[in-house]
Amino acid sequence: MEATATMDRAQPAHDPLDEASRAVADAAEALVDCWNRAGQNSATRLSALQVRALVAVRRVPGANLSRLAEMVGASVPAASRLCDRLEAAGFLRRDRAATDRREIGLSLTKDGADALLSLSERRAEDLRDVLQHMPDEERDALLAGLRAFTRASHPPDSAPPDRAPGR
Rank of each mutant, 00 (worst) to 15 (best):
L31Y: 13
V32Q: 03
V32M: 05
D33H: 00
D33M: 01
C34I: 06
W35Y: 08
W35Q: 02
R37G: 06
R37V: 07
G39E: 05
G39Q: 04
N41D: 09
N41L: 07
S42A: 09
R45P: 00
R45H: 07
S47A: 01
S47G: 13
S47R: 10
A48K: 14
A48F: 06
Q50L: 10
Q50A: 06
V51Y: 09
R52S: 13
A53M: 04
A53T: 04
A53N: 03
V55Y: 05
A56W: 07
A56F: 10
V57N: 11
V57Y: 03
R58Q: 09
N64S: 02
N64F: 10
L65R: 03
R67H: 11
L68Q: 03
L68A: 05
A69Q: 01
E70Y: 01
E70R: 08
S75W: 06
V76N: 12
P77F: 00
P77V: 01
A79F: 02
A79I: 15
S80M: 07
R81D: 02
L82D: 06
D84T: 11
R85A: 08
A89R: 13
G90A: 12
F91Q: 15
F91E: 12
F91H: 15
R93W: 12
R93A: 14
R94Y: 05
R96W: 03
R96M: 10
A97F: 15
A97H: 14
T99P: 00
D100Y: 12
D100G: 03
D100W: 14
R101V: 10
R101I: 07
R102S: 13
R102T: 15
I104Q: 14
G105E: 15
G105P: 02
L106M: 14
S107M: 08
S107N: 12
T109W: 02
K110N: 10
D111I: 02
G112M: 06
G112T: 04
G112C: 04
A113V: 02
D114I: 02
A115T: 06
S118M: 10
L119N: 07
S120N: 05
E121W: 00
R122W: 01
